[in-house]
Design a protein around this nucleic acid. Structure first.
Length: 484
RNA sequence: GCCUCCGUGGUCUAGCGGUUAGGACACCGCCCUCUCAAGGCGGCAACACGGGUUCGAAUCCCGUCGGAGGUGCCA
């Protein structure tokens, strides 16, 4: 049977799209596209209390920014809508009642409060609370009558007391659980909305989802979902449970702990291509040593067999490395365009040549938000310790320092045309004629005009960027400072 | 506690009965060099542990330990 592949990404609008979520979306997208299938976005907003205003729009925009275009979804339409669960509210109850008819579910009138009390007591004693099926034993007549009076009720799944429930996962294989350990979950809440446990089954079926990709947090409840599919007589989808992304060995990635979201990373100056490439490899391997993939290439290379079963720790250093590589590969004009606002942050109001600076910076940019601090010295001469003008390896000593700086001053002052070639020529020729080492002059010169031990570019480039006047001003100040 | 799952260097991973256990990030050293970066070369570093099975185990089985997820009228 060649069933059309349809996958879905089904986030809850409870905040920004975190990286674990983005990775799930990515794998879901890749799997669908790899098999020429459809990728669907469905919003799971049945918990109205947790919904965060604006979160749905954030999901739309993040997915688009990442390039994960969905074929069907709330804002793009499709034949299986609506794609927002609260807008589907009316269609869950009939299915739940069908289950009640079949004996696979039952109405329950126990209140949340009394259940909470019992749950606490059991947990305090170190046990696992399980609903005791009290309302299952109500007569049909009594149940119907109480429902008719408007008494609040929920509908629970009726899990068999013996036997096992199981399902097959593409990644984890056969997962089995004793029914005796499974609880009678609520399917329809007192507010009439379905819980995730029910909505996911109904919607995946109604939307003809062929492959369900989701986090491993659903691994242990999936056997229960299969019981539901069986009760309805439906064919369950193929499941692919994805391990979580961790912040460290024991904590999940989460906004609450200050971990960056996809949007945060973009704002910091990480390229989306780098982020996508990085998270694709966080828990998945192409099976060889290849590291660089565009989204299109990922579609081509993706294979669920390359998915890893254990949780992966998010490693910022590696992301930064990817970002550095992607920045270096950017066409120069694109780099210039992207870096300009960051230059502005530090250099607004100066005449620094952004084009030349960008040439110098492109190979040294790891993350854009580090750029301002790297170039700020061009606008304002930082205070610095004169000691850093001395450098043993560069043969810049206390004795050589003043003569070296004065030589540089003498060589640069007469230059009428301030070009890098001329500066280079004047300096190199002069240094040679004076019988000095390049480093003896160039090291302290660079420090004297930048105030920094390391700079993006050498003394000649920095001097050119600063211009003749500013270069000589800074050089003169340094000479004056050490001769006094 | 109970249930389910997972376990290769610090991190991401390749490996699917026979390999000097491979690659990448990070880290260290050297070279290059007017600094830094990049680049080149080299280095440190792993099969969680204990039993089996087998001529042979990172690969298969069991146990222990460690970790994660679940245990909600949250998803």
């Amino acid at each position: 049977m060649s069933q059309a592949v349809r996958t879905r990404f089904a986030p809850s609008p409870t905040g920004y799209l975190h990286l674990g979520g983005l990775r799930t979306a990515l794998y879901t997208y890749l799997f669908a596209k790899k098999h020429q299938g459809q990728f669907i976005l469905r919003i799971e907003d049945t918990d109205q209390e947790r919904e965060v205003p604006g979160a749905i729009e954030l999901i739309y925009s993040s997915l688009r920014e990442a390039g994960l275009y969905y074929d069907e979804g709330p804002d793009v339409g499709g034949d299986y809508g609506p794609y927002i669960q609260t807008q589907r509210k009316h269609l869950y109850l009939p299915y739940a009642l069908e289950l009640v008819e079949k004996g696979a579910a039952y109405p329950c009138f126990c209140t949340k409060e009394e259940l909470d009390g019992r749950r606490k007591a059991v947990e305090k004693a170190g046990g696992t609370f399980k609903y005791d099926k009290h309302c299952l034993h109500l007569s049909k007549e009594e149940a119907k009558a109480r429902m008719a009076t408007g008494e609040p009720y929920v509908i629970r799944q009726n899990i068999p007391e013996t036997g096992t429930a199981s399902f097959d996962d593409l990644l984890f294989g056969h997962i089995q659980a004793d029914c005796a350990t499974l609880d009678d979950n609520v399917l329809i809440k007192a507010d009439g909305l379905p819980t995730y446990n029910f909505a996911n089954v109904i919607d995946d079926h109604l939307m003809a989802i062929s492959h369900v990709t989701r986090g491993t947090e659903y691994l242990s409840s999936a056997p229960k979902y299969n019981l539901l599919y069986e009760a309805f007589g439906w064919t369950p989808p193929t499941y692919i449970h994805l391990p979580v992304v961790m912040k460290d060995a024991s904590r999940k990635l989460s906004k609450r702990h200050g971990d960056p979201s996809f949007e945060d990373l973009l704002e910091m100056g990480y390229l989306k291509e780098a982020i996508i490439n990085f998270i694709a490899l966080l828990g998945w391997s192409p099976g060889n040593d290849r590291e660089f993939f565009t989204l299109e290439e990922l579609v081509e290379a993706f294979d669920a067999r390359g998915l890893n079963k254990s949780p992966a720790i998010f490693n910022m250093d590696k992301l930064t490395w990817f970002n550095t590589e992607y920045i270096r590969k950017l066409p120069f004009d694109r780099y210039l365009e992207l870096v300009t606002p960051w230059f502005d942050q530090a250099l607004a109001g100066t005449n620094i040549d952004y084009r030349r600076l960008a040439e110098l910076m492109q190979g040294r940019t790891e993350v854009f938000n580090r750029v301002p601090d790297m170039v700020r010295f061009l606008k304002e001469m930082p205070a610095f310790d004169p000691e850093i003008m001395l450098n043993k390896k560069q043969k810049s000593t206390e004795e050589s320092l003043l003569p070296a700086l004065r030589l540089a001053q003498d060589l640069l002052s007469p230059l009428s045309s301030w070009t890098e070639d001329n500066i280079h020529e004047a300096l190199m020729t002069g240094i040679r004629e004076a019988g000095m080492k390049n480093g003896t002059v160039l090291w302290p010169l660079r420090v004297a005009i930048s105030g920094q031990a390391s700079t993006p570019g050498g003394a000649i480039e920095i001097a050119w960027l600063l211009g003749k006047e500013e270069t000589l001003r800074r050089l003169g100040a340094a000479i004056k400072n050490i001769s006094s």
